[in-house]
């Protein structure tokens, strides 16, 4: 299968196979007007299998969301058909409105306009906690 390279935009490579759907959703790629290619289960010497996403637009990408989902993703910004900038990711220290607190006793449950903010409290175990009630985010 062949998918053409892009003239300008963003390429997300080395995505753990199966995670591209989650990324598509969390980055809000469905709202983009441009061409987006999602390639799943590509053979990779490093990972065995991987996913790749190509976005033919220079939109403002939330690197924290990517780092949270999979810090091993490589992010390349493409200009005039060549790589202009490459980013490596890290687990973000803080996430705003990416994770949502589900604790019914948390103030975020009664006041809708409060941003949901989570802090990385244990980098080793990748534990994020709500800054208001300290509830652990559980489906990672």
């Amino acid at each position: 299968m062949k998918v053409d390279g892009i003239e300008s935009g963003i390429v997300l490579d080395h995505i753990t196979a199966g995670k591209s759907n989650q990324i598509y959703r969390l980055l809000g790629l469905e709202s983009l007007d441009c061409c987006v290619a999602m390639i799943q289960n590509v053979r990779s010497t490093k990972l065995g299998k991987k996913d790749i996403i190509k976005i033919a637009s220079e939109f403002e990408i939330n690197l924290d969301v990517l780092g949270y989902i999979d810090p091993n993703i490589s992010v390349s910004f493409i200009k005039d058909g060549a790589v202009a900038k490459k980013f490596t990711l890290a687990l973000p220290q803080q996430l705003t409105n990416v994770l949502y607190c589900k604790n019914p006793r948390c103030i975020t449950s009664s006041e809708q306009e409060i941003p949901h903010v989570f802090k990385l409290t244990d980098p080793e175990k990748q534990v994020y906690r709500c800054i208001y009630c300290e509830a652990k985010h559980s489906n990672h």
Partner: peptide, 22 residues
């Protein structure tokens, strides 16, 4: 509600003391 005093401290122009949040 848990965390309400933290919200308060982020919006206050004077010191806030948490006297118990849930």
């Amino acid at each position: 509600k848990e965390g309400a005093p933290l919200i308060a401290s982020l919006n206050a122009s004077v010191p806030v003391i948490n006297a118990g949040d849930g």
